[in-house]
Design a protein around this nucleic acid. Structure first.
Lengths: 354, 354
DNA sequence: GGAAAGTTTGGAACCGCTTCCAGTTTTCGT
DNA sequence: ACGAAAACTGGAAGCGGTTCCAAACTTTCC
């Protein structure tokens, strides 16, 4: 199957190379007759223009580079990023772009960035908080637009998309406060992360409005992993003063915590109530089903793609920092309206057609 | 920051464009003096050759295209593919290649393939069973090598990498048989999938050797999702004859099943024993911790990358179909040696440095 | 009917790099 | 010291497209 080029098509259609290029790119000023002939040849010979050659000539690739972190396998394998990436991929395709994903691990940052900066992408989507350090070096001078998923205070002038973390924390706090829990613990993310700060502030604000507060000593900063949630909860249990309600700023940590509680023979939510954050697909199936703050993960990806493409195409962006709203999903781990088993069964919303 | 080209470097180093190209590609026949001058200029001006131009000229991209399916969000968000992709990405980088991942959903297959076939990749890694239908059309005639992760009986002549599914099933069967369970159920994957067939055959062989068999009527084909495991288990419970032991050919289904058992007030493993398959990172943290057949997911990805690159580089491949060995991980859901809680706590093997 | 305006077309330069080839310089054996 | 072999270098032709421009052809309208 000899590869066919634009010149072959031109010859076959009895036109010049320019004409073929024009019909390829939907340019005007091509006679109907010529266009028809060219299209016929293209169809019959299944011709596809080389995107490499096209990129070289036009300096446009219609490819977006998405860099996802792998600080820890657990973050990735929780399914969170998979959903974001799925969204980005779909959102790009909707607009005629292609999302090329690369998984960036700390030990390979150099190599990856080397490859990436050689390849001309039209824009970059970065998973914030994890790649920003190298971004500074590699991409700051880039003429191509960059979008952060998740905000990073260090780069306030980079565009970003995230959820309203403060409100997410507030919703969790409100829920816990309403149910009358008093001795309250909090498992946060990395201390310096903006989302940690915001979720915490929102949570504490809600508690404060109800005259409550987090019990001193029961506030831990941990990584996003099952393990840290598990370990911290074990420690709290061992302290003999385990909180009555715990807000975990990620479902993964909450799941680890549930595990520790189960092993210690404590009942959820009767002995200890747990509220998570994220609403991962798996969380509807935890035992017991997790009450958590839902964030539109997939949509975040879609919107990220659209936003970046707007930037690529020179459209005016109204919000430099776009924040999507979270909401609370009440299931079984924190008492409340859905504390009976059946009603907490997976709902239609959780389903995905297989 | 004006973009600097090979000609600029050549001029700055007082050599011809050819010489620069040679040092870039580590070709011999460049004098030490010239090489040094060129390298100095490259370093000082932070020059990176354009991979687009290079690809056009040399017809080599050092880019691998990885297509992951998204038949259902759940498959992806289980973390399984994330691990495979991570492995592929790392394995590629080790050999100087770059893995460009694209998430393929059924509704966007056309668009994706269009993009992919225009872009010159050096090779393709496909997630079997889910993309093969379109592969036939789009890639069969491709001169570039293709590798399947997971086998597909429809394409026996395509290279593939997988685990030894038969043995995996056998290990599960042996474990269940040894513990003396009699009324046994089995939740399989899609009926036509090769892995389903193999896992089932191995499982039944092990049972048969112990004089046992799967109870008729308690064998279900389901998709890889929490939901199907949940629903099937509910039905079995409702039948009033719930199996004493259940083999689920994926951890995700097993987790759904655990949830259903918990809701029904049944204890695991005292009332019903469950064995999963995959050993996802999350499975060590399920409640109770899942006994399951471990498969080296990440390594599968690494090996896949290496194998494909061998093909790209024209090396002789000894095994067209490479099968990695699985092993059983005994935790809490099926009784046996690790039935007490503490010993089933996450082990070092399960940990990933955060 | 003819000039002005608009439409369609092909030629040619160019995007940034690789690679072949012929020419030039260096090395080395005797 | 001389010629042949080896090492090095630069010119030029691509790779497969896009795009600018001038030329050729149509249409419009007074």
């Amino acid at each position: 199957m000899k590869k066919i080029t634009i010149d072959d098509v031109a010859a076959l259609a009895h036109v010049s190379r320019s004409v073929v290029s024009r019909v390829l790119n939907n340019h005007p000023n091509v006679s109907a007759a010529a266009r028809a002939r060219v299209e016929k040849v293209i169809r019959e010979h299944n011709y596809r223009p080389s995107s490499v050659a096209r990129s070289l000539a036009s300096d446009r690739t219609y490819e977006l580079c998405v860099m996802a972190p792998r600080r820890s396998n657990e973050v990735l394998s929780s399914g969170y990023w998979a959903l974001v990436l799925l969204g980005v991929s779909a959102g790009s395709l909707q607009r005629g772009y292609f999302a090329s994903i690369s998984l960036v691990s700390p030990d390979m940052e150099g190599q990856i960035f080397d490859r990436i900066t050689r390849h001309a992408f039209d824009g970059y989507i970065l998973i914030a908080h994890d790649v920003t350090a190298i971004v500074a070096d590699a991409l700051q001078g880039s003429p191509k637009p960059i979008l952060l998923v998740g905000q990073d205070p260090e780069f306030p002038n980079l565009h970003s998309i995230d959820i309203d973390n403060w409100t997410g924390g507030y919703l969790a706090g409100q829920h816990i406060a309403q149910l009358g829990y008093a001795h309250i613990g909090m498992m946060l993310g990395p201390e310096e992360a903006k989302e940690t700060i915001d979720r915490r502030a929102g949570f504490e604000q809600a508690l404060q409005e109800a005259g409550l507060s987090v019990t001193p000593g029961y506030q831990a900063y941990c990584h996003y992993s099952w393990e840290t949630g598990y370990i911290v909860m074990q420690e709290w249990i061992a302290s003999g003063q385990c909180p009555r309600a715990v807000f975990c700023t990620s479902d993964v940590k909450a799941t680890g915590a549930l595990r520790a509680l189960h092993e210690a023979g404590l009942r959820v939510p009767e002995d200890v109530a747990v509220v998570g954050f994220d609403d991962l697909p798996a969380s509807a199936y935890s035992v017991p089903a997790l009450t958590t703050v839902h964030q539109p993960i997939y949509e975040k990806g879609v919107r990220a793609a659209h936003m970046l493409i707007d930037m690529v195409e020179g459209k005016r962006i109204t919000d430099i920092h776009l924040n999507l709203p979270p909401h609370l999903v009440v299931r079984q781990t924190c008492g409340g309206t859905a504390s009976s088993a059946p009603s907490a069964a997976p709902t239609a919303r959780d389903r995905t057609k297989a």
